Amino acid sequence: MAYKITLTPSGHSFDAPADETLLNAADQAGFKLPYGCSAGACGACKAKVVAGEVDHGSSQEHALPADERAAGMALMCCAKPLSDLTVEVREVGALSGIPVKKLPCRVQKMERVAPDVMLLQLKLPASEPLQFLAGQYLEFIRPDGSRRAFSIANAPHRNEFVELHVRLVAGGEFTTQVFETMKEKDILRIEAPLGSFFLREDSARPIILLAGGTGFAPIKGLVEHSLHKGYTRPIHLYWGARDKAGLYMDALARRWADEHPHIQYVPVLSDATADDAWDGRTGLVHQAVLEDFADLSGHEVYACGAPAMIDAARQDFAARGLPEDAFFADSFTFATH
Protein backbone atom coordinates (compact mmCIF):
# COMPACT_ATOMS: atom_id res chain seq x y z
CA MET A 1 0.00 0.00 0.00
CA ALA A 2 1.18 3.52 -0.77
CA TYR A 3 0.33 6.81 0.88
CA LYS A 4 0.36 10.37 -0.44
CA ILE A 5 3.08 12.54 1.12
CA THR A 6 2.79 16.33 0.81
CA LEU A 7 5.77 18.54 1.60
CA THR A 8 5.25 22.01 2.98
CA PRO A 9 5.93 24.82 2.26
CA SER A 10 6.86 23.70 -1.28
CA GLY A 11 3.56 21.89 -1.94
CA HIS A 12 5.41 19.03 -3.63
CA SER A 13 3.81 15.60 -3.23
CA PHE A 14 4.68 11.99 -3.96
CA ASP A 15 3.58 8.47 -3.11
CA ALA A 16 5.44 6.47 -0.48
CA PRO A 17 5.02 2.72 0.04
CA ALA A 18 4.25 1.70 3.60
CA ASP A 19 7.54 -0.20 3.83
CA GLU A 20 9.72 2.67 2.53
CA THR A 21 11.31 5.43 4.59
CA LEU A 22 10.18 8.93 3.78
CA LEU A 23 13.75 9.93 2.89
CA ASN A 24 14.11 7.15 0.34
CA ALA A 25 10.65 7.69 -1.10
CA ALA A 26 11.27 11.41 -1.52
CA ASP A 27 14.62 10.75 -3.18
CA GLN A 28 13.10 8.27 -5.62
CA ALA A 29 10.46 10.88 -6.47
CA GLY A 30 13.19 13.43 -7.19
CA PHE A 31 12.88 15.54 -4.05
CA LYS A 32 16.00 16.08 -1.96
CA LEU A 33 15.53 16.32 1.81
CA PRO A 34 18.22 17.11 4.40
CA TYR A 35 20.00 14.05 5.79
CA GLY A 36 23.21 12.91 7.39
CA CYS A 37 23.92 9.44 8.77
CA SER A 38 20.77 7.77 7.35
CA ALA A 39 20.70 5.61 10.50
CA GLY A 40 18.53 7.57 12.91
CA ALA A 41 21.48 8.79 14.93
CA CYS A 42 22.37 12.35 13.87
CA GLY A 43 19.09 14.24 13.62
CA ALA A 44 19.97 16.03 10.38
CA CYS A 45 16.80 14.78 8.67
CA LYS A 46 14.43 15.82 11.46
CA ALA A 47 11.12 17.23 10.20
CA LYS A 48 7.64 17.93 11.54
CA VAL A 49 4.70 15.69 10.66
CA VAL A 50 1.91 18.26 10.46
CA ALA A 51 -0.81 15.73 9.62
CA GLY A 52 -0.91 11.94 9.62
CA GLU A 53 0.90 9.15 11.46
CA VAL A 54 4.30 7.50 11.01
CA ASP A 55 6.18 4.46 12.26
CA HIS A 56 9.38 5.91 13.76
CA GLY A 57 11.37 2.75 13.08
CA SER A 58 14.92 2.75 14.40
CA SER A 59 15.03 6.44 15.43
CA GLN A 60 17.45 6.80 18.34
CA GLU A 61 16.41 8.56 21.54
CA HIS A 62 19.24 11.11 21.58
CA ALA A 63 18.47 12.15 18.00
CA LEU A 64 14.70 12.23 18.52
CA PRO A 65 13.85 12.69 22.23
CA ALA A 66 10.43 11.63 23.48
CA ASP A 67 9.19 15.20 23.86
CA GLU A 68 10.02 16.01 20.24
CA ARG A 69 8.38 12.80 19.05
CA ALA A 70 5.27 13.73 21.02
CA ALA A 71 5.33 17.16 19.37
CA GLY A 72 5.16 15.55 15.92
CA MET A 73 8.82 15.51 14.95
CA ALA A 74 10.22 12.54 13.01
CA LEU A 75 13.47 11.43 11.41
CA MET A 76 12.91 11.09 7.68
CA CYS A 77 15.59 8.39 7.33
CA CYS A 78 13.68 6.07 9.68
CA ALA A 79 10.03 7.14 9.57
CA LYS A 80 7.61 5.14 7.40
CA PRO A 81 4.08 6.28 6.62
CA LEU A 82 1.06 4.80 8.36
CA SER A 83 -1.33 7.18 6.56
CA ASP A 84 -1.31 10.07 4.13
CA LEU A 85 1.05 12.72 5.50
CA THR A 86 1.81 16.41 5.41
CA VAL A 87 5.43 17.04 6.39
CA GLU A 88 7.02 20.41 7.08
CA VAL A 89 10.59 20.20 5.83
CA ARG A 90 13.19 22.29 4.00
CA GLU A 91 13.99 20.77 0.62
CA VAL A 92 17.59 20.94 -0.56
CA GLY A 93 17.54 22.14 -4.14
CA ALA A 94 21.33 22.31 -4.41
CA LEU A 95 21.54 18.52 -4.34
CA SER A 96 19.32 18.09 -7.39
CA GLY A 97 21.21 16.95 -10.43
CA ILE A 98 24.25 15.67 -8.52
CA PRO A 99 24.44 11.93 -9.19
CA VAL A 100 25.36 9.52 -6.42
CA LYS A 101 27.83 6.99 -7.82
CA LYS A 102 29.49 3.76 -6.77
CA LEU A 103 33.11 3.95 -7.86
CA PRO A 104 36.42 2.15 -7.45
CA CYS A 105 39.25 4.29 -6.13
CA ARG A 106 42.96 3.85 -5.48
CA VAL A 107 44.76 4.89 -2.31
CA GLN A 108 47.14 7.52 -3.67
CA LYS A 109 48.63 8.88 -0.46
CA MET A 110 48.69 8.04 3.24
CA GLU A 111 50.05 10.53 5.75
CA ARG A 112 49.81 10.25 9.53
CA VAL A 113 49.11 13.86 10.50
CA ALA A 114 48.60 13.02 14.20
CA PRO A 115 49.23 9.88 16.26
CA ASP A 116 45.59 8.86 15.72
CA VAL A 117 44.72 10.66 12.46
CA MET A 118 45.53 9.43 8.96
CA LEU A 119 45.15 11.65 5.90
CA LEU A 120 44.06 9.59 2.91
CA GLN A 121 44.07 10.73 -0.69
CA LEU A 122 41.92 8.61 -2.99
CA LYS A 123 42.43 8.71 -6.75
CA LEU A 124 39.19 8.40 -8.71
CA PRO A 125 38.75 6.97 -12.23
CA ALA A 126 39.69 9.62 -14.81
CA SER A 127 36.67 8.61 -16.89
CA GLU A 128 34.20 9.24 -14.02
CA PRO A 129 34.83 12.56 -12.27
CA LEU A 130 33.03 12.95 -8.99
CA GLN A 131 30.68 15.91 -8.67
CA PHE A 132 30.08 16.93 -5.04
CA LEU A 133 29.43 19.86 -2.75
CA ALA A 134 32.02 20.93 -0.19
CA GLY A 135 31.13 19.30 3.13
CA GLN A 136 29.49 16.14 1.80
CA TYR A 137 30.72 12.65 2.68
CA LEU A 138 31.38 9.28 1.10
CA GLU A 139 30.95 5.70 2.24
CA PHE A 140 33.43 2.89 1.79
CA ILE A 141 31.65 -0.28 0.68
CA ARG A 142 33.50 -3.17 2.28
CA PRO A 143 33.65 -6.69 0.80
CA ASP A 144 31.09 -7.93 3.34
CA GLY A 145 28.67 -5.17 2.31
CA SER A 146 29.14 -3.09 5.45
CA ARG A 147 29.81 0.62 5.09
CA ARG A 148 31.95 3.27 6.75
CA ALA A 149 31.30 6.99 6.28
CA PHE A 150 33.95 9.74 6.12
CA SER A 151 33.63 13.42 5.30
CA ILE A 152 35.33 14.77 2.19
CA ALA A 153 38.02 17.25 3.25
CA ASN A 154 38.78 18.95 -0.07
CA ALA A 155 36.72 21.41 -2.09
CA PRO A 156 35.05 20.28 -5.33
CA HIS A 157 37.22 22.42 -7.60
CA ARG A 158 40.01 19.97 -6.73
CA ASN A 159 38.20 16.78 -7.67
CA GLU A 160 41.09 14.85 -9.20
CA PHE A 161 41.27 13.13 -5.82
CA VAL A 162 39.29 12.89 -2.58
CA GLU A 163 40.91 13.75 0.75
CA LEU A 164 39.76 12.11 4.00
CA HIS A 165 40.86 12.48 7.63
CA VAL A 166 40.50 9.11 9.38
CA ARG A 167 40.72 8.93 13.16
CA LEU A 168 41.73 5.63 14.74
CA VAL A 169 38.76 4.37 16.76
CA ALA A 170 39.51 1.93 19.57
CA GLY A 171 38.20 -1.46 18.47
CA GLY A 172 37.19 -0.11 15.08
CA GLU A 173 37.82 -2.77 12.42
CA PHE A 174 37.98 -0.41 9.46
CA THR A 175 40.09 2.32 11.05
CA THR A 176 42.46 -0.33 12.41
CA GLN A 177 42.78 -1.61 8.84
CA VAL A 178 43.63 1.91 7.68
CA PHE A 179 46.39 2.30 10.26
CA GLU A 180 47.83 -1.23 10.24
CA THR A 181 47.33 -2.98 6.90
CA MET A 182 46.19 -0.49 4.26
CA LYS A 183 48.86 0.66 1.84
CA GLU A 184 49.20 3.01 -1.09
CA LYS A 185 47.83 1.66 -4.40
CA ASP A 186 45.18 -0.45 -2.62
CA ILE A 187 41.88 -0.49 -4.51
CA LEU A 188 38.72 0.34 -2.56
CA ARG A 189 35.07 0.91 -3.45
CA ILE A 190 33.07 3.97 -2.48
CA GLU A 191 29.63 5.51 -2.87
CA ALA A 192 29.49 9.31 -3.10
CA PRO A 193 28.55 12.05 -2.64
CA LEU A 194 26.20 11.75 0.32
CA GLY A 195 24.69 14.09 2.91
CA SER A 196 23.24 17.60 2.95
CA PHE A 197 26.02 19.34 4.89
CA PHE A 198 27.24 22.09 2.56
CA LEU A 199 27.58 25.86 2.43
CA ARG A 200 24.35 27.77 1.79
CA GLU A 201 25.75 30.19 -0.77
CA ASP A 202 22.59 32.29 -1.14
CA SER A 203 22.99 33.71 2.38
CA ALA A 204 24.97 36.75 3.49
CA ARG A 205 24.96 35.91 7.20
CA PRO A 206 28.28 35.71 9.06
CA ILE A 207 29.37 32.11 9.46
CA ILE A 208 30.46 30.23 12.57
CA LEU A 209 32.30 26.99 11.77
CA LEU A 210 32.45 24.59 14.70
CA ALA A 211 34.73 21.55 14.43
CA GLY A 212 35.51 18.84 16.95
CA GLY A 213 38.53 16.61 16.22
CA THR A 214 38.37 15.24 12.67
CA GLY A 215 35.17 17.22 12.26
CA PHE A 216 37.68 19.67 10.82
CA ALA A 217 37.63 17.64 7.57
CA PRO A 218 34.37 18.94 6.02
CA ILE A 219 34.97 22.36 7.60
CA LYS A 220 38.27 22.50 5.67
CA GLY A 221 36.32 21.77 2.49
CA LEU A 222 33.86 24.58 3.23
CA VAL A 223 36.66 27.11 3.84
CA GLU A 224 38.59 26.10 0.71
CA HIS A 225 35.44 26.33 -1.38
CA SER A 226 34.55 29.73 0.06
CA LEU A 227 38.04 31.07 -0.67
CA HIS A 228 37.99 29.61 -4.19
CA LYS A 229 34.69 31.38 -4.88
CA GLY A 230 36.00 34.65 -3.48
CA TYR A 231 33.33 34.94 -0.80
CA THR A 232 34.07 37.45 1.96
CA ARG A 233 31.29 36.65 4.44
CA PRO A 234 32.84 36.83 7.93
CA ILE A 235 33.98 33.36 9.03
CA HIS A 236 34.65 32.50 12.68
CA LEU A 237 36.33 29.08 12.82
CA TYR A 238 36.39 27.28 16.18
CA TRP A 239 38.32 23.99 16.29
CA GLY A 240 38.31 21.90 19.43
CA ALA A 241 40.56 18.97 20.29
CA ARG A 242 41.75 17.16 23.41
CA ASP A 243 45.40 18.15 23.03
CA LYS A 244 47.62 20.11 20.69
CA ALA A 245 48.30 17.09 18.49
CA GLY A 246 44.58 16.93 17.79
CA LEU A 247 44.82 20.25 15.94
CA TYR A 248 46.58 18.37 13.18
CA MET A 249 46.26 21.16 10.60
CA ASP A 250 46.61 24.09 12.98
CA ALA A 251 49.18 25.78 10.72
CA LEU A 252 46.75 25.72 7.78
CA ALA A 253 43.94 27.28 9.83
CA ARG A 254 46.30 29.96 11.15
CA ARG A 255 47.41 30.72 7.59
CA TRP A 256 43.80 31.22 6.49
CA ALA A 257 43.32 33.74 9.30
CA ASP A 258 46.63 35.49 8.59
CA GLU A 259 46.00 35.85 4.85
CA HIS A 260 42.27 36.65 4.86
CA PRO A 261 40.89 39.45 7.06
CA HIS A 262 37.35 38.01 7.02
CA ILE A 263 38.50 34.75 8.68
CA GLN A 264 39.08 34.43 12.42
CA TYR A 265 40.44 31.21 13.93
CA VAL A 266 40.01 30.11 17.55
CA PRO A 267 41.60 26.77 18.57
CA VAL A 268 40.34 25.28 21.83
CA LEU A 269 41.84 22.40 23.87
CA SER A 270 39.79 20.44 26.40
CA ASP A 271 42.61 18.40 27.98
CA ALA A 272 45.86 20.23 27.28
CA THR A 273 48.93 18.62 28.85
CA ALA A 274 52.00 20.29 30.29
CA ASP A 275 53.92 19.18 27.21
CA ASP A 276 51.51 21.17 25.03
CA ALA A 277 52.65 24.44 26.66
CA TRP A 278 49.24 25.76 25.69
CA ASP A 279 48.33 29.38 26.38
CA GLY A 280 45.22 29.49 24.19
CA ARG A 281 41.54 28.85 24.90
CA THR A 282 40.54 25.80 26.95
CA GLY A 283 37.33 23.90 27.69
CA LEU A 284 34.53 22.79 25.39
CA VAL A 285 34.71 24.26 21.91
CA HIS A 286 31.04 25.23 21.68
CA GLN A 287 31.34 27.01 25.03
CA ALA A 288 34.05 29.18 23.50
CA VAL A 289 31.49 30.33 20.92
CA LEU A 290 29.03 31.14 23.71
CA GLU A 291 31.72 33.15 25.48
CA ASP A 292 32.29 35.23 22.34
CA PHE A 293 28.72 35.68 21.07
CA ALA A 294 25.87 36.92 23.25
CA ASP A 295 23.49 37.01 20.28
CA LEU A 296 23.56 34.48 17.43
CA SER A 297 20.32 35.54 15.78
CA GLY A 298 22.09 36.96 12.72
CA HIS A 299 24.53 34.08 12.13
CA GLU A 300 24.70 30.69 10.46
CA VAL A 301 26.43 27.78 12.17
CA TYR A 302 28.03 24.78 10.49
CA ALA A 303 29.00 22.19 13.11
CA CYS A 304 30.79 18.90 12.66
CA GLY A 305 31.95 16.43 15.30
CA ALA A 306 30.71 14.02 17.95
CA PRO A 307 26.94 13.79 18.56
CA ALA A 308 27.28 15.14 22.11
CA MET A 309 28.95 18.30 20.81
CA ILE A 310 26.37 18.74 18.07
CA ASP A 311 23.43 18.26 20.44
CA ALA A 312 24.85 20.68 23.03
CA ALA A 313 25.63 23.31 20.39
CA ARG A 314 22.19 23.04 18.80
CA GLN A 315 20.46 23.55 22.14
CA ASP A 316 22.73 26.24 23.57
CA PHE A 317 23.01 28.23 20.35
CA ALA A 318 19.22 28.25 19.97
CA ALA A 319 19.04 29.77 23.45
CA ARG A 320 21.26 32.58 22.12
CA GLY A 321 18.82 33.30 19.32
CA LEU A 322 20.19 31.15 16.49
CA PRO A 323 17.29 30.32 14.15
CA GLU A 324 16.58 26.61 13.75
CA ASP A 325 17.05 26.88 10.00
CA ALA A 326 20.50 28.46 10.44
CA PHE A 327 22.09 25.45 12.18
CA PHE A 328 23.65 22.86 9.87
CA ALA A 329 25.36 19.80 11.29
CA ASP A 330 27.33 16.72 10.36
CA SER A 331 27.24 14.45 13.39
CA PHE A 332 29.92 11.75 13.45
CA THR A 333 28.72 8.31 14.50
CA PHE A 334 31.28 5.55 14.87
CA ALA A 335 30.93 1.87 14.04
CA THR A 336 33.28 -0.75 15.43
CA HIS A 337 32.21 -3.79 13.41
Rank of each mutant, 00 (worst) to 15 (best):
G93I: 01
I310D: 00
V117M: 07
H165E: 07
D116W: 02
A217R: 07
A253C: 11
R200D: 11
I263F: 10
Y231I: 12
L95W: 06
R69A: 09
P34D: 02
T282Q: 13
K183P: 00
G172H: 15
M1L: 09
I98L: 00
L247C: 01
L95H: 09
L222A: 09
Q60W: 14
I190T: 08
T273D: 10
A319M: 14
D144H: 13
A26Y: 02
E173C: 03
T181M: 08
R142V: 03
H225K: 13
S83M: 13
A313L: 03
A71K: 15
G280P: 10
V285Y: 12
G246E: 05
P65T: 07
D330R: 01
N159A: 15
S59Q: 11
L95C: 06
V87M: 02
A63N: 00
T21S: 11
G93L: 06
L82S: 10
H228C: 05
V117T: 07
P267G: 04
S196E: 02
Q315E: 15
W239L: 08
T214G: 11
H225Q: 09
Q315K: 07
E88G: 00
L237K: 04
A94Q: 08
E173L: 12
P218T: 01
R106H: 09
E68P: 02
A16N: 12
L85A: 00
